[in-house]
Nucleic acid binder design. Structure first.
Length: 939
RNA sequence: GCUCAAGUGGCGGAAUUGGUAGACGCGCUGGAUUCAAAAUCCAGUUCUUUCGGGAGUGUGGGUUCGAUUCCCACCUUGAGUACCA
C-alpha cells in the first residue's frame, strides 16, 4: 500500500472541517494558550510559498501545545480594508468589495490545502460591518478620553470637564495641543457650548486639527509617517509632499514613554524593539527660550546640549516656523520669502536626497543670549526640521557638525568653549571627553555636571528647563479613500459629534465611483453619497437633531491600521454583537501568548496595536497593557529569478555562458521561473510560447542548451519568480510542503526558495509510511519494543521537544529522519514505539499522522493525543563520555564506565594512549591528563 | 554616517554553560535491483597528501590543556535608520 498523499490530505482536511476539530472554547479546565499569525491582506496575487512560512511555524506550535494539554486559540482572518486592496481593485477596474471577496475566497482555498489547524468559526474580516462596528466604537472611546499625566493614564473626558468647571485648566497636567490657552473656572463657565467643545477637542485622544500632513497626490490620500519610505509612499513608491489639511489624528505621543517602557516587559526580537525605540526617539535635554530683540516674541528651542549654551553664535529656524514672517526685517523680506517658497516646492525626497548643500537666509533679526545678553543673529535654514522639537535650534558651531558647516559657509563666528580642543577643522561632539571653557559658571565642568548646572541656571532666570523630547509624532488617522471604515462622526456647526453605539455600524455605502480624487476631496463626498448621508442622518438623528436639515457626515475613512490594532482581542469573542468582546472572554484569554509575523510591521501595526492596547487597558476594557507576550519574526522566503540575455536591438538571446562576448550590448530580461528546470535550462519553445514578444526569438545555445542566469530577490509578480504552494501540494503533498518550508533553514532567517531539496523530506514521509507497513499490509504489532527501539524513541522525544520550545523547527525535521532511518534499520514494528512517534510527527505532518493514527485503531483525531514523555532511563546506560585533553595539542573523548574515579580515568587514558601509539608502531607521547567535565550522557 | 545581525564543504544548513567540526537533506561518484528506465536500497563524498600525516569554521591577534563558540582589531555581506539639534 503506497503513500497516497492527495487522497489522505483531502480526507483529513474534510474531517477536521466537519468535526470542528480545532474549535476553541472560551472556558476550559485546561490552561489557555493563544497562538496568533499576522492576518493577511487578501491581495490579488494569491499566496506564494513565502506566505505560509510563519503560518506553518505557528501551526506546529499550536498543535504541539494541544498535545501538551492546552486549550489553544489559533484563529485566522483577513485585513481586508485599506490601500493594497483598493489599489488592486483600481488596477483591475473592479469594485473593491468584489475583488476583496474573490481574493478572500482564493486565500481560503489555498490555506485549506496546507492543513492548518485554524478555528475558522472565529474568522474576522476588517471590512465586515460586524467587525468594523467595533472599530468605530473604539474610535468613539478614544474621542471620549484624555490623557492625565499625573495619573499617567487615559481617563474619561467628562472627568476633564469636571476639572475644568472646578479649577479651570491652570492646575491640570494633561496631554494637549500646543496652542491651548489657559482659562479660569469663570472663563470656562462663560464659554459657549461650541467653545467648550473646541477646547475639549484639544485634549481628546483622537482629535481634529489642521496639521501639516504627508500628501501623496498619486494615491490621492494622506499617509502616516510609517507609510512613507525614503520620502516616497510605501505603496507604489509615489512622491509625497507636505500639505496643510484638517485631519483626524491619534494622540499616540501621549503614550511615548509607556510604549518605550513596555518593551522591557515583552519577549520580542531585539531588532524589532530597537526599531521601535528608534522610532519613538526619546532624547533628554532642555528647552531654552531666547527673547527676540525689539520684538515681544520668544523663540523656544530644544537642545540635548544645554552645557554648550555659551557656544551659541546664531539660531536657525525651520523655514516653516511661524515666527519667521513676524521677525524678518524689511531689508531681508524678499530674500526670506524666496527661500521659503523654494523649500516648499521641494518634495520630501529632494530634501532628503540633498543633505550636503548648505542653504539658509539671515532674517535680519537678533535674539538675546539668556546669560551674556549678547545679540544672536537669527537665520532660517532647511536643515532644521519643522516637525521635530520646536522647529528651531540654538546653533553651537563648535559642538555640532551641521551648525559648524552652516557657520563656515556663511562666515558666522565659531567660538570655542571646549578646553584643549582644536576646532579649526571640524566640530567637537564627544560628550565623554568634554571639558567646558569660556563659559562663565560652567568653566571646568564635564558634560554631565555642566548639563545639570546649565539647566539649574536657566530655571533660575526662567528661561529654560530640563525636557525630554520624542521623535514620535501623532498619527494622522484620516484617509481620503473609499475602501476603509467610515467614521462614526457627523458635524454640527463644524464641531464633530459621535454617533451612538446603537446606530453602529455606520456602513460604507455602495457606490459606483470610488476612485480617489486629485484634490483631496474624499470619494464619499460625491453626489452619489448624498443619499447615504440623508439616510444615516435619519437613523442617527433621534430627537437631538432637527429632522429637516441634513448634517454633514465625516467623509474620510480610517487608515488600514485601524482594524488591525485590536483584531487579536476580537478573536476572543468574534461573534458578539452586544459588546466588542465579553468580559469573560477577555479575562480568560487575556493576551496573545505567541505572535508570528513579518518584521516590516515594526513601526506600523505593532506600534499602533500596542498604543490601542494601552489605551483600552487604561479605560479598563482589556486586562493587560501589552497584547503579545512573545513575538517572532519569520524571515522572508526569496525568489530565484531567471534571467535571459538579449543582444540589444535584436531578437537574439544568448545562453549565460556566451553573454560575455557581447559585453555592453546585453540586456537582461526576467522570465517565468516555472519554465526553468533544476539545471537552469530553458526550453526555447517554452519561451516562444510564453509571451508574444518572444514569439520570433532566436537563440544562441551552449552545448545545445539555453542556460539562464539566476538572481535571488524578493518574490514578486514583476520579477516572474513567484512559486505558488498549490503546485507543490499537488506534486508532493501539503505535509511535504510543511516539512520542507521548516527544513529550509532557521525560521527567523531570510532564505531563497529552491524546490530541488523537497525530494528529501518527501522521501522521509514515504519511509515513515513504510515503517508502519509490512508490504501491502499495515504492519504495526503489539510486539515488545527492543532496547534500541526505546533509545531511539526517547532521544527523539527529547530532541523534538527542545527544538519546538526553541522554535528550531528545521533541526527537528532532521531528528525525525534519523529516527525513521534507525527504526527502519531496527525493523521496529512495535506499537509502543510507533504510536508515540506519530504524536511527535503530527504537528509537522498532520495528515499522514491522522491517517496512520486511524489505522492504529483510534476513532478520534490525533490532535488531542498527549505528547509523549521523555524518559531518561532509556538513554542512560553504563558509560559516560569523558573529553580528555593532553600534551596541549591533542584531544579526544573516551567512553568510560560510570563509576570510575578521577585517578582511574587518568590511568585509563594513559593506557589508551600507549595502546594507540604501540599499534601504530610509535613511541607513546608524554601524556598530561586534564580531566574534562562530563559532556554528555549518552546511551 | 549610525544601529543591529551574519560570515562553516559544490549547495541549504547542524554543532552554546568552550570538549571528536561538517549532523540532516540536496547534489555528485560507485554499486545492487531492472530488458531498460523510474522508484528503492547499499557505500563514498571538507581540502590536501609521498597514505605516515598535514591544513581547516571571513582575516589577524589574544585567553585556554582545548575556541565555530569567549575577548580585541579588521574585512565582507545583509537588514533597519538617517539633517532628530
Amino acid at each position: 500500500m503506497s503513500y497516497d498523499f492527495n487522497t489522505i490530505e483531502a480526507k483529513w482536511q474534510a474531517y477536521w472541517a466537519e468535526n470542528g476539530t480545532f474549535k476553541a472554547e472560551n472556558n476550559s479546565d485546561k490552561p489557555k494558550y493563544y497562538v496568533l499569525d499576522m492576518f493577511p491582506y487578501p491581495s490579488g496575487a494569491g499566496l506564494h510559498v513565502g506566505h505560509p512560512l510563519g503560518y506553518i511555524a505557528s501551526d506546529i506550535y499550536a498543535r504541539y501545545k494541544r498535545h501538551k494539554g492546552f486549550n489553544v486559540l489559533h484563529p485566522q482572518g483577513y485585513d481586508s480594508f485599506g490601500l493594497p486592496a483598493e489599489q488592486y481593485a483600481i488596477q483591475t477596474g473592479q469594485h473593491p468589495a468584489i475583488t476583496t471577496k474573490e481574493n478572500i475566497a482564493r486565500y481560503r482555498e489555498q490555506l485549506d490545502k496546507i492543513g492548518f489547524s485554524f478555528d475558522w468559526s472565529r474568522e474576522v474580516k476588517t471590512s465586515d460591518p460586524k467587525f468594523y462596528k467595533w472599530t468605530q466604537w473604539i474610535f468613539i472611546q478614544l474621542f471620549d478620553s484624555w490623557y492625565d499625566n499625573d495619573a499617567d493614564k487615559a481617563r474619561a473626558i467628562n472627568e476633564l470637564e469636571e476639572v475644568f468647571s472646578n479649577e479651570g485648566n491652570t492646575t491640570i497636567n494633561a496631554v494637549c495641543d500646543e496652542d491651548v490657552v489657559t482659562f479660569s473656572v469663570e472663563e470656562w463657565n462663560d464659554f459657549s457650548s461650541l467653545e467648550k467643545q473646541e477646547v475639549l477637542l484639544k485634549y481628546r485622544l483622537t482629535y481634529l486639527a489642521e496639521t501639516e500632513v504627508n500628501w501623496c497626490p498619486k494615491l490621492g490620500t494622506v499617509l502616516a509617517n510609517d507609510e512613507i519610505v525614503n520620502g516616497v509612499s510605501e505603496r507604489g513608491g509615489h512622491p509625497v509632499i507636505r500639505k496643510k489639511m484638517t485631519q483626524w489624528s491619534m494622540r499616540i505621543s501621549a503614550y511615548a514613554q509607556r510604549l518605550l517602557d513596555g518593551l522591557t516587559t515583552i519577549d520580542w526580537p531585539q531588532p524589532l524593539k530597537d526599531s521601535q525605540t528608534n522610532w519613538i526617539g526619546r532624547s533628554q535635554g532642555a528647552s531654552v527660550t531666547f527673547n527676540v530683540k525689539d520684538h515681544d516674541e520668544v523663540i523656544e528651542v530644544f537642545t540635548t546640549r544645554p552645557d554648550t549654551i555659551f557656544g551659541v553664535s546664531f539660531m536657525t529656524l525651520a523655514p516653516e516656523h511661524e515666527l519667521v514672517t513676524k521677525i524678518t526685517t524689511p531689508e531681508q523680506k524678499a530674500e526670506i520669502e524666496a527661500y521659503i517658497e523654494a523649500t516648499a516646492k521641494r518634495s520630501e525626497r529632494d530634501r532628503m536626497a540633498d543633505v550636503k548643500t548648505i542653504s539658509g537666509v539671515f532674517t535680519g533679526a537678533y535674539a538675546e543670549h539668556p546669560f551674556t545678553k549678547e545679540p544672536v543673529p537669527i537665520w532660517i535654514g532647511d536643515y532644521v526640521l519643522a516637525g521635530y522639537g520646536t522647529g528651531a535650534v540654538m546653533a553651537v558651531p563648535c559642538g555640532d557638525q551641521r551648525d559648524y558647516d552652516f557657520a563656515k559657509h556663511f562666515g558666522i563666528e565659531i567660538p570655542n568653549i571646549f578646553d584643549g580642543v582644536d576646532i579649526s577643522e571640524e566640530a567637537f561632539a564627544d560628550k565623554e571627553k568634554t571639558i567646558i571653557a569660556n563659559s562663565d559658571f560652567l568653566d571646568g565642568l564635564n558634560y554631565k555636571k555642566a548639563m545639570k548646572r546649565a539647566i539649574y541656571e536657566l530655571e533660575k532666570i526662567g528661561q529654560g528647563k530640563g525636557k525630554i523630547n520624542y521623535r514620535l509624532r501623532d498619527a494622522v488617522f484620516s484617509r481620503q479613500r473609499y475602501w476603509g471604515e467610515p467614521f462614526p462622526v457627523y458635524y454640527v456647526d463644524g464641531m464633530p459629534q459621535m454617533i451612538d453605539l446603537q446606530h453602529l455600524p455606520i456602513e460604507l455605502p455602495e457606490v459606483e465611483k470610488y476612485l480617489p480624487t486629485a484634490t483631496g476631496e474624499p470619494p464619499l463626498g460625491r453626489a452619489d453619497v448624498w443619499a447615504w448621508c440623508t439616510e444615516t442622518n435619519k437613523v442617527v438623528s433621534n430627537e437631538k437633531i432637527d429632522n429637516t436639515s441634513v448634517f454633514p457626515l465625516e467623509l474620510n475613512t480610517m487608515p488600514g491600521w485601524a482594524g488591525s490594532s485590536y483584531y487579536f482581542n476580537r478573536y476572543m469573542d468574534p461573534n458578539n454583537d452586544e459588546v466588542v468582546f465579553s468580559k469573560e472572554a477577555i479575562n480568560y484569554w487575556k493576551e496573545v501568548d505567541l505572535y508570528i509575523g513579518g518584521s516590516e510591521h515594526a513601526t506600523g501595526h505593532l506600534l499602533y496595536a500596542r498604543f490601542w492596547q494601552k489605551f483600552l487597558f487604561d479605560r479598563e476594557i482589556v486586562p493587560v497593557d501589552e497584547f503579545a507576550k512573545k513575538l517572532i519574526n519569520q524571515g522572508m522566503i526569496l525568489g530565484t529569478s531567471a534571467i535571459v540575455y538579449r543582444i540589444s536591438g535584436t531578437n537574439t538571446y544568448v545562453s549565460k555562458g556566451l553573454k560575455d562576448q557581447y559585453k555592453n550590448q546585453i540586456e537582461e530580461l526576467r522570465v517565468d521561473v516555472n519554465m526553468i528546470n533544476a539545471s537552469d535550462e530553458l526550453d526555447p519553445n517554452d519561451l516562444r510560447n510564453w509571451q508574444p514578444q518572444f514569439e520570433d526569438a532566436e537563440f544562441e545555445l551552449e552545448d545545445g542548451k539555453y542556460i539562464v542566469g539566476r538572481e535571488v530577490e524578493k518574490m514578486s509578480k514583476r520579477w516572474f519568480n513567484v512559486v505558488n504552494p498549490d503546485g507543490v501540494c499537488e506534486q508532493y503533498g501539503a505535509d511535504s510542503l510543511r516539512l520542507y518550508e521548516m527544513f529550509l533553514g532557521p525560521l527567523e532567517q531570510a532564505k531563497p526558495w529552491n524546490t530541488a531539496g523537497i525530494t528529501g523530506v518527501h522521501g522521509f514521509l514515504k519511509k515513515l509510511w513504510k515503517l508502519y507497513h509490512n508490504g501491502e499490509e499495515f504492519g504495526v504489532t503489539d510486539a515488545e519494543p527492543s532496547k534500541d527501539n526505546l533509545k531511539t524513541l526517547h532521544k527523539t522525544i527529547k530532541k523534538v521537544e527542545e527544538d519546538i520550545e526553541n522554535f528550531s523547527f528545521n533541526t527537528s525535521v532532521s531528528t525525525f529522519m534519523i529516527a525513521v532511518n534507525e527504526l527502519t534499520a531496527q525493523k521496529c514494528n512495535a506499537r509502543a514505539i510507533l504510536e508515540p512517534l506519530l504524536v511527535l510527527v503530527s504537528p509537522y505532518a498532520p495528515h499522514i499522522a491522522e491517517e496512520l493514527w486511524s489505522k492504529l485503531g483510534h476513532n478520534d483525531s490525533i490532535a488531542t493525543a498527549a505528547f509523549p514523555i521523555f524518559e531518561e532511563k532509556h538513554l542512560v546506560e553504563s558509560s559516560k563520555q569523558y573529553p580528555i585533553s593532553f600534551n596541549g595539542k591533542m584531544r579526544f573523548t573516551m567512553e568510560l564506565p560510570l563509576d570510575m574515579s578521577k585517578e582511574d580515568i587518568e590511568a585509563a587514558v594513559m593506557a589508551h594512549e600507549k595502546t594507540q601509539q604501540q599499534l601504530a608502531g610509535r613511541e607513546p607521547k608524554k601524556v598530561i591528563v586534564v580531566p574534562g567535565k562530563i559532556v554528555n550522557i549518552v546511551g
